[in-house]
C-alpha cells in the first residue's frame, strides 16, 4: 500500500498544483491574476507530462558513451550505420533499424512536446495580456465584474436609445 502511494505521490502532488491553478482562474475576478492562474495550470500540465516520461535510473536524453560512438571518417565502423547502409536501399526517406541502447535514458517525447508548449504558452499569455491592456483602456478596470456591469449599463443605455428613437419614429 505504501509503495502504491509512493509511486503515485508525484501525480497527486501535480494534480493538486493543477487544481490550485484552476481555482485561481475560477475564483479571482482580476483578469491579470486569472491569467497567472492559467499559466500556473499550464506549467502543472507540463510537469505532469514530463513526470510520466521519467524512467527509473535513466538520465537526460542526450546520448553518451557507447550509444554515441564517433565514426571517424568512414561509416562502416559503426554496426548500426553499416546495417542501415546495406538495408537502406533507396537514398531517401528510410528510417533506420532500432538499436538496443547501452545506457538508460528518460523518454524524450514529452520533453519535446513540453518545450514547444512552454514557448507557445508565453506567446499566448502575452496576447491575453495585450487584450487585458486594451480592456483596461476601454473600460478603466480589469475586474471582470466591473467590466460586466459597465457592459450591462451600456447595453441598457443603447436599448433605451433605440426605444426612444422608435417612439419618435412612430409619433
Amino acid at each position: 500500500m505504501l509503495e502504491f502511494i509512493l509511486e503515485r505521490a508525484n501525480y497527486w502532488a501535480i494534480i493538486g498544483l493543477m487544481m490550485i491553478g484552476l481555482y485561481i482562474t475560477f475564483a479571482s475576478g482580476n483578469l491579470i491574476k486569472r491569467l497567472v492562474g492559467l499559466s500556473l495550470f499550464q506549467t502543472s500540465v507540463c510537469l505532469f507530462y514530463v513526470t510520466l516520461g521519467k524512467v527509473a535510473g535513466g538520465t537526460a536524453p542526450i546520448l553518451y558513451g557507447e550509444d554515441a560512438v564517433e565514426h571517424g571518417g568512414g561509416h562502416g565502423a559503426d554496426a548500426a550505420h553499416h546495417a542501415t547502409g546495406v538495408t537502406g536501399g533507396h537514398a531517401l526517406g528510410n528510417a533506420s533499424a532500432p538499436v538496443e541502447l547501452v545506457h538508460t535514458y528518460s523518454n524524450v517525447l514529452p520533453h519535446v512536446l513540453m518545450l514547444t508548449a512552454i514557448v507557445v504558452g508565453v506567446a499566448t499569455l502575452s496576447v491575453g495580456l495585450a487584450l487585458i491592456v486594451r480592456i483596461r483602456e476601454a473600460y478603466g478596470s480589469i475586474e471582470s465584474d466591473e467590466v460586466r456591469e459597465i457592459d450591462l449599463e451600456m447595453a441598457l443605455a443603447q436599448e433605451a436609445e433605440i426605444d426612444q428613437w422608435l417612439n419618435e419614429a412612430g409619433a
Binding site: 546520448l63 554515441a68 548500426a80 542501415t84 528510417a95 532500432p98 538499436v99 523518454n107 524524450v108
Partner: peptide
C-alpha cells in the same frame, strides 16, 4: 523508438 534510431538517422 526515437531514442533507438536517432543516432543512426
Amino acid at each position: 523508438t526515437y531514442m533507438q534510431i536517432n543516432w543512426a538517422d
